[in-house]
Every structure is written in structure tokens, then in C-alpha cells.
Amino acid sequence: MGIKIDPGKCTACMACELACGYHRDDAFALLSACIIAYRARELKDYFGVVLKEEDTLVIARPEGLEVKRIGAVEEDQGEADASAKPMLLREPCDLCADREGGPLCQTVCPVDAIYQG
């Protein structure tokens, strides 16, 4: 079970991102959120949501959902890195384990684009 995103429903409102930031910081902030509304390609109206999980990135694009391994060594990019330390900037999704109502991002999504599955 993990967070899933329906890119067709998403309206890029960022409620999920702020909720996640709140879950991490107990304040309103965006920089530590592990779910991010991707909104850089504004002139093309190309937006979606990226979710950082323990080992994967879940990318909800208009085309559909893609799941990518994080840190996998691709081609000849690098050698094994056994001592790699996690960067604590954006910790992976913990499904808001300490929250009775489940993941807060799911709760605050006004258009029900976030679900678990």
C-alpha cells in the first residue's frame, strides 16, 4: 500500500505539498514535503505531482503514472555507494504513520486525486 495519484484529477493546487510540509515541520513550509506539485512548465500547462517514497519516485504526469527507482546506478554513471547517507531535506513518505486519519495529503486533496492503493 502506498500513495497513488490520479493526474487527471489533479489541479496543481499544492494542498498536498503544504500538508506534507506541515507533517514534517509542524508549521507551514514547503521545502521538506515529499509530495510536490510539479509546476515549472507553466507556459505549456504541463503539471503533475512527484512523490518521494523510500526507494522510488512516483511521478504523476498528464500521460499517467510512472514509478522510478531512486538512486539506482544507471549505465556507467557511478560505482556502488554502500555508505550513502540519506539527505534529510525531503524524507520519504511515511504515510503519516503518526496520524490516525491516514496520510494528510490524501485528506486535504479537495478533488480526491490522491488515494492509497
Binding site: 489541479t11 496543481a12 493546487c13 499544492m14 494542498a15 503544504l18 500547462d45 503539471f47 498528464p62 486535504v108 479537495p110
Partner: peptide, 8 residues
């Protein structure tokens, strides 16, 4: 597509 303002 339709786009919302922040948390709207």
C-alpha cells in the same frame, strides 16, 4: 486542463 490557485 483546469488549474487551481494555491489550495483552492
Amino acid at each position: 486542463r483546469h488549474r487551481a490557485g494555491f489550495n483552492t
